[in-house]
């Protein structure tokens, strides 16, 4: 029955007879409106109670849980037609997962993308905060694999809920103290536990310690989305974020003395090591924020252009 009367009626009824045969029409931002509203409500609660992990009905996304499904839901719930999105993984806009998530956000919304924070409004990230200073125009969405900072000291979720409710972080302090006594230094690496607004302890996702001070009294809003564990939490602008440490044990960020980026020469950014290989010779360091590094290099090579920001 080709283009029957019935199909004509159907075509008129659903407004577009093409869509009968194509992929179903995708809602702006992929999620249905009910889901978006629910996620926004969770985000509002998270902003109102800084550092509190708000449970939400995490949806199954076209990316696997553990691959940024929480960050993606937060981004898609708040993205609007005027936004410009930047997505990074490990600081790199070209990382495979960043490419994949950006493709999903852009294709389901039609909004423009950018690699420079200056041009962006919504920045979704895994494991880094961009080196550029962010401000009131930016919302930073962080993908969170493990939102519970206390899991290392307590496994029972009922007890964890009590500890947060009563701000009972004694065992966390004990574990940090034991760490220091046993190892001489606090060996926590990424996702360093921080006290937010003097009330809740959060896991700062696995961002390096290098990035942690930038959450403190920041000018931008940070939203943390944990899809698999179904939690959202937030650090609103101008909020205290204090790494848990002792008066006589200063908080340490990752610094390797003498290391500079081989590409742009920076020593004031978070560097990652490119190990020595038989082909390439000795090891070296490069910026993890690839776009920041690129612009710095361009300014150096073409000083007259003054870069792009």
């Amino acid at each position: 029955m080709s283009t029957s009367l019935l199909q004509q009626v159907l075509g008129e009824a659903i407004g577009d007879d093409e869509s009968l045969f194509d992929e179903p029409e995708v809602n702006f931002g992929l999620l249905d409106e009910y889901s978006k509203r629910e996620i926004r409500r969770a985000i509002l609660t998270a902003v109102a109670v800084p550092g509190y992990q708000v449970p939400f009905g995490s949806r199954e996304m076209p990316v696997a849980r553990g691959w940024g499904s929480g960050g993606l839901q937060v981004s898609l719930a708040i993205v609007g037609p005027d936004d410009v999105v930047k997505v990074i993984d490990q600081g790199d806009d070209e990382g495979v997962n960043a490419v994949n998530l950006r493709r999903l956000i852009v294709s389901s919304t039609g909004i423009p993308e950018s690699t420079t924070p200056e041009d962006s409004t919504l920045i979704q990230t895994r494991h880094r905060i961009p080196e550029d200073p962010l401000d009131e125009r930016h919302v930073l969405v962080l993908q969170v694999p493990v939102p519970e900072p206390l899991r290392g000291v307590e496994r029972d979720m009922r007890e964890l809920a009590r500890m947060h409710a009563e701000a009972d972080y004694a065992r966390m302090w004990v574990s940090l103290y034991e760490d220091k006594v046993r190892n001489g230094v606090i060996t926590r690496t990424t996702g360093y536990p921080c006290l937010v607004d003097g009330r809740y302890v959060i896991a700062t996702t696995p961002i390096p310690r290098w990035d942690v001070p930038r959450l403190h009294q920041s000018r931008f809003l940070s939203l943390f989305g944990a899809g698999r564990e179904k939690r959202i939490y937030a650090v609103p602008p101008h909020t205290d974020v204090e790494p848990l440490t002792f008066e006589d044990v200063p908080f340490e960020v990752e610094v390797t003395p003498g290391a500079t980026c081989r590409t742009c020469g920076s020593s004031e950014s978070f560097l990652v090591e490119v190990p020595a290989s038989r082909v390439d010779g000795g090891g070296h360091w490069v910026c993890s924020d690839s776009d920041w590094c690129r612009r710095r290099r361009e300014r150096r090579d073409h000083p007259s252009n003054g870069g792009d920001s």
Partner: peptide, 11 residues
């Protein structure tokens, strides 16, 4: 997925 930022921090 790439974990070289976290791994660098661990190193």
């Amino acid at each position: 997925l790439p974990h070289y930022v976290t791994f660098r921090s661990m190193m």
